[in-house]
Each structure stands twice: as C-alpha cells, then as structure tokens.
Amino acid sequence: MSASAFNGVLGRVIRNRRILIATALLVIIACVALASKSLAPFDPLQQNLRFRLMPPGSLGADGRMFLLGTDQFGRDAFSRILVGARVPLIVSFSAALLGAAIGLLIGVIAGYFQGWIDSLIGLLIDAQLSIPFVLVGMMVVVLFGPSLHNIVLVFTLLSWPIFARIARDEARLAARQQFVEASLIGGGTTTWILLRHIIPAALPRVIVVAAIQLAYFVVSESAFGFFGLGVPPPEPTWGNILSDSRSYLFQAWWLGLFPGLAIALIAFAANLFASGLNEVVDPASTRGSTF
C-alpha cells in the first residue's frame, strides 16, 4: 500500500523539490511572523530620537545592534519588519483561503450543472473581472474604512471570480470525463459525484491559483499600505513602512530596500509553490515540443 501511495499525485508532490523548498520557506516565515513580538530585539513602536536614521549595523545606547538600522523616529527597522509581517500574512492567507473556498464552490456548481445558472455565474465572473481590482479595492477601503477585516473582505470579494473561473473550467472538463459518467451509472448521487470526483478534480488547479493569489495579495496589501490605504499606523505593516521610507530615499536607502525584499521573499515562496504544484498537476505543460 505505502509503496503504491508514493506513486500517486501525493508522492510526486512530496518529491517535488520546488514544493519542498517553498513549503519550508512559507512555514518558517509564518512561524517567525507568529512569534515576531517575542523575536523582535526591540519594541517596534519604541521611539528614540537620539538614534534617528541610523544605518544597518549601528549600535544603540545599551550596545545592542540595530541590525537593519533605524527609521526617522529611531525605531529599530529589523523589529518593525518582523512585526510588520503579521498584517500582510494574515490578510493574504485568509483572503486566499476564503476566496478559494467561495470560488471553488460557485465555480464547481456552475461548471457541473451548466445551463442558466452557469450563464448567470459566468456573467457575474466576467463583470467582476472586467473592473480594475486595485482601484475598486482601494475605493472600498476608502468607503468602508481600512480595518484588517475590511481588507481581508475586499481581497476575498474581489478574488473569488478568479478562483471560480478556474474551478468552473475544471469542473466542466471533469463532468465530461467518462469516470464521472461511470460513477453516475454506478449509482452516485449528485452530492456524491461533486464531493468525490468533481471537487477533487478541480482542487489542484484552485490550489495553484491560490498560491499565486497569495503572492499577489502580499504585494497588493503592501501597495494599499504604500498609498496610505492599508491598516493604519501605529501597527507597522510592510506597506506603511515603505510609505514612510519614501521621504528618506536619499538619507536612508535601507528603509526602502529591506521591507521590499521581505515582500518579494514571501511572494517568491508562494509562486515557487505554485510552479512546483503545476509541474505535478500538469506534467504535459512542462514537457518539450516536437521542434
């Protein structure tokens, strides 16, 4: 049994190097973010005007090092980056999860049942996808206020059509597969078939997209913060750290560089996960052509 289990999709997932590296990265980042308050060497909100805009590696009054320097209020940049990871991570993980769940459900229903319900859901998906995500998202935040759960809600509501479109295509393909017909003839009820055949068929692609969206959400959340539309200070987020750094581009390059790299690292891990999973799910697309 076990020998056979590792020949299946699961085995290929476990053995895929990209997935392995990406998962390790994401787990480490998540753990660091969770424990950031105790890991941070300084209080991220503690101002110390004596040590304003110190470059990386400078020593503080008590001899402790500001690993990545200090900002315009003398706050430790490294501690702020650590603690600032929490908001983007919470926002992107929850929005990706919620969006994927809602999109999967709606998409699978549309793709499996087809007919008028599919036409209606298709219209809704197209309507949502034809509006510029960032602009409408920011408009909602301005209208409803920039709280954590509002931002999660905005990302979820704006991204479900992306998941739904993928789930719908996959469900439609799966519904045409003979093994689904075989299940129907074998006595499978609609719920049985949806749970055992259609959703499992749609799930891998939805997870790939969820990972890509996760990366996109981390980046977008920081863009919101950058334009002052994210979770407001004093809570540090990578977005508002970058926003603050804008005025000190010339004096303190480190303030803008490191939060950006942190964002890129998470997004990179998520995208690496997506590309590894894609390799497993769709080996055909990674093979060479005749020429």
Binding site: A215, F226, G256, A264, A267
Partner: peptide, 22 residues
C-alpha cells in the same frame, strides 16, 4: 519570470527611479 511575479511593482518603480533618475 518568477522574480517578476514576486516583486511589488511600486517598489521596483522606486528602485528604478533611485537608480536611473537619481
């Protein structure tokens, strides 16, 4: 391509400005 997919565009824009303009 992976890098392009992972970086925040506004951040790259700032870096570009800093490097090529400033």
């Amino acid at each position: 391509v992976l890098a392009a997919q992972s970086v925040p565009v506004f951040w790259v824009s700032i870096l570009l400005i800093q490097l090529f303009a400033v």
